[in-house]
Design a protein around this nucleic acid. Structure first.
Lengths: 124, 124
DNA sequence: ACCTGGTTCCATGCGATGCAAGATACCTGG
DNA sequence: CCAGGTATCTTGCATCGCATGGAACCAGGT
């Protein structure tokens, strides 16, 4: 990528991902266990949340450390064995919690960005 | 605070704010200069983005350091003088940049949270 | 048997950010 | 003079995303 044009945009997008990536990964595991590279590709396909292995694997380690996911090894027909990550009850609860919080947060940001903040009309 | 019930929610909300707070503050200055406590109250009123002075003032220092805002002192009729923050051209450009990036990000998260990820229908 | 390439996993060190807690200064009123 | 509200700022900590590098397994060609 060329440095210079996308710097500000990359910076904004980078900071945006903080804290959201965790729950998007949990959401991907909602209906089926997933393995690392699979999650990575799903995030890439989304465009706005594309990231790297150096981000995903430490994240998965944290999720496992906090008992939000459990892992099982599974053989692959084309390559080394894969570690599949599945939601625990705590993980599902955390995802539900986030699903409740997210709309309020999203709407708050939308309001700040789209609502004019008139200098007139204030009661002073 | 009790570390147990509201921890997860507070944690999710805390991480969500990362990187977004900066641009919401810039958005608040879009139509009028603002001073610290004023910004703080506006964020409080939004609910989802409520934060503390210990977050806002270092943030404002960074914005000033990066030439995204300029500041002017102004007397107050009821208390110490206020430092008003106003957008520079760079600040306005950064805000516009974020305004362009935000919808894609927001929609991506919405998609992850609401789209079912079927375990069937895969070609395997 | 060797070696190249693709797939999959993981660890380390850095920079950036939000936050709790504390410190400082100004003004008004008793 | 002292108390309380307003307003600003600093310090130290914890967390998170990311670039970089390393390791292991399998298939195919020479």
């Amino acid at each position: 990528m060329e440095p210079g044009d996308s710097t500000k945009q990359a910076r904004a997008a980078t900071q945006l991902r903080k804290g959201v990536l965790e729950y998007c990964v949990l959401a991907l595991m909602r209906d089926r266990p997933r393995y690392g590279v699979e999650l990575l590709h799903a995030l890439e396909d989304s465009g706005a949340l594309a990231t790297s292995q150096g981000t995903v694997y430490p994240l998965l380690s944290r999720l496992r450390r906090d008992d939000l996911v459990t892992t099982t090894w599974q053989e692959s027909t084309s390559g080394p064995p894969r570690r599949y990550y599945a939601l625990t009850d705590s993980g599902r609860a955390a995802l539900d919690e986030f699903t409740r919080v997210w709309p309020g947060f999203r709407n708050a940001v939308d309001t700040f960005l789209t609502t004019p903040h008139p200098s007139t009309g204030d009661l002073a």
